[in-house]
């Protein structure tokens, strides 16, 4: 048991959530191992994004418990959960549109602010060095995504694909142990999708973290995930390697229906 538990970075134990009478997610059991790349798929309305919102604390589960590295995070507010190491992106991009690309990343460093009001009011040495370090760090992170040259631009002026990449960069700036990507390929063309696949594999290696991925693009999911969980009507209907999932009759039924 203890060795089994140690292998779990994130653990959802029998989690359910009700919206009025609707069971959006019911008795969901799931764990994410360190450095794992896991896919979460399912038809529209299956409850995938709800699960993301449960993990990140946007929703509180009706029953069940969520544990991160052995610590219960079920009742924590979102900003506490980020501090403990879970970062996310959003299905419909939620950048700080009117702020610069650089500021978007700098905001993620705020939780380790490193100075207090007297420092910032008096512009002490501590303030100046912390700020300079942050900018340097943010720029080198943006460089990985090829965005450093456009750090001064307003985020909403970036092309769509770059906005998606910036959102990932912003999430990585919180230095997470687990990264949750909510349909990162939505709205990208096939060329950009290939780039994204490479980016995701690169992130995992370079930042040494686990990734949980919601995606509708089967080629992408099957191509990079080690393990896939299939969800329908809030319940897990299948789990396994991409190979197993592809051949699973239940999955085919959920996506295509039966005659």
């Amino acid at each position: 048991m203890s060795t089994e538990a140690a292998k779990r970075l994130l653990w959802l134990d029998d989690v359910s959530i009700l919206f009025g009478g609707l069971k959006a997610v019911s008795h969901f059991n799931f764990h994410l191992k360190p450095r794992e790349l896991c896919g979460l798929i399912g038809p529209n309305g299956a409850g995938k994004t709800t699960i993301f919102n449960l993990i990140t604390g946007v929703y509180k589960p009706t029953s069940g418990a969520i544990t991160l590295s052995g610590e219960g995070i079920t009742q924590h507010p979102p900003f506490e959960i980020v501090k403990r190491g879970i970062a996310r992106t959003f299905q419909n991009i939620r950048l700080f549109g009117e702020l610069s690309v650089l500021d978007n990343v700098l905001i993620s460093y705020h939780m380790k602010i490193g100075y207090n009001y007297p420092d910032l009011l008096l512009r002490t040495k501590r303030f100046v060095t912390v700020e300079a370090d942050r900018v340097k760090k943010a720029l080198s992170l943006l460089a990985i995504f090829g965005l450093d040259a456009r750090a001064d631009l307003v985020a909403s002026s970036l092309p769509y694909g770059d906005q998606r990449r910036l959102e990932i960069a912003r999430a990585l700036a919180t230095e997470p142990k687990a990264l949750l990507l909510d349909e990162p390929a939505a709205g990208l063309n096939s060329r950009e999708k290939v780039d994204l696949m490479e980016t995701i594999s690169m992130i995992r290696k370079r930042f040494d973290l686990s990734i949980l991925l919601i995606e509708h693009d089967m080629k992408l999911v099957m191509g990079i995930c080690e393990r896939i969980v299939v969800l329908d009507h809030g319940e897990v209907i299948a789990e396994g390697s991409p190979r197993e999932i592809q051949d699973n009759p239940k999955v085919i039924e959920a996506y295509l229906g039966v005659d």
């Binding site: 700080f96 500021d103 905001i107």
Partner: peptide, 17 residues
């Protein structure tokens, strides 16, 4: 910057700590 992030998108701000 934290204040500005509130103006821009509260949910995203909360999710960035």
């Amino acid at each position: 910057r934290a204040l500005l992030s509130l103006r821009e998108d509260e949910i995203a701000a909360e999710s960035m700590g």
